[in-house]
Amino acid sequence: MKIWHSYGSEHSMDLVLIGKFETVSGAEAAIERMEALKALAETERSDDDWRSRDERMPDALVDELLRLKLYELGRSDVDIYAFDHSIERNGSIIRIWTEESEIQGFLKVLLHLGARVEVFSRHDWNEDGTPRKAAGG
């Protein structure tokens, strides 16, 4: 019998990102960009082949990021939109739920459009801002 020893990152982060905008139109612009990035990620997602020496982004990806005026995003920032996540807008507040620890692509969009951002794990905090009670405590 062989036992495989390796590192895995399957542990769920159960993260919540909350972006608070000054205006509803700011939140709407963020949602529009995130929907466009999700569609882009699904068509232009990288193969995650770490052995590849060619780190350049495809022209279609570059062109769309320029069109969206998201100059600070890179390939991995776009790729995160292909993973399972949920986005909800309520007025000028956007909530994003994800199991991933890589959230840079979400943060960059929220901050680029002027949001004040809060990030927490639902393992430790309730969505109303109160701490979760530890088991046995």
Rank of each mutant, 00 (worst) to 15 (best):
W50C: 05
A60F: 01
L15P: 03
G26R: 04
E35T: 06
R89K: 15
Y71K: 09
F21H: 12
A27R: 06
S25A: 13
S25F: 02
V16Y: 04
G114I: 09
D84G: 07
E55K: 06
G105D: 03
S92N: 15
L111D: 10
K108Q: 06
K38D: 12
Y81E: 03
M1I: 09
R53A: 08
L70N: 08
G74P: 01
R51T: 01
K69N: 12
E10P: 00
G74C: 00
D84W: 05
D59A: 05
F106D: 12
H123W: 15
D14L: 12
E102V: 10
D48T: 00
E28C: 06
W97N: 13
R89H: 08
D124M: 15
L40W: 05
A41L: 02
T98G: 02
A60G: 10
D128A: 14
G136Q: 10
W4G: 06
T98D: 03
M13L: 03
D48V: 00
L73Y: 06
S121Q: 06
S101D: 09
I3A: 13
S121I: 12
A134I: 04
L65K: 01
A115F: 07
L113Y: 03
H5P: 02
E127D: 12
L70V: 04
R132I: 07
F106Q: 00
G105A: 09
M57T: 00
I31D: 03
L66K: 14
S92E: 07
A82K: 11
S25Q: 04
D77P: 04
P58I: 02
S6P: 00
N126E: 14
S12F: 04
F120T: 09
R51K: 07
F120Y: 15
D79G: 01
S52C: 04
V62H: 10
V78Y: 08
R75C: 01
K2R: 09
L68S: 02
V117G: 00
I93Y: 04
L73D: 06
N90K: 06
R53P: 04
L113W: 08
A29C: 07
A134Q: 02
E127R: 06
G91K: 13
D47V: 09
P58N: 07
E22A: 03
H123Q: 13
H5W: 07
E44Q: 15
E118F: 01
S101R: 14
W50S: 14
I96E: 00
M13A: 13
R53N: 11
R89E: 12
E100P: 00
G26H: 07
V117R: 10
F106L: 12
Y7A: 12
I3G: 11
L66D: 07
L110Y: 08
S86H: 15
D128R: 13
L17V: 02
S25K: 11
L73V: 04
R53S: 14
T23F: 10
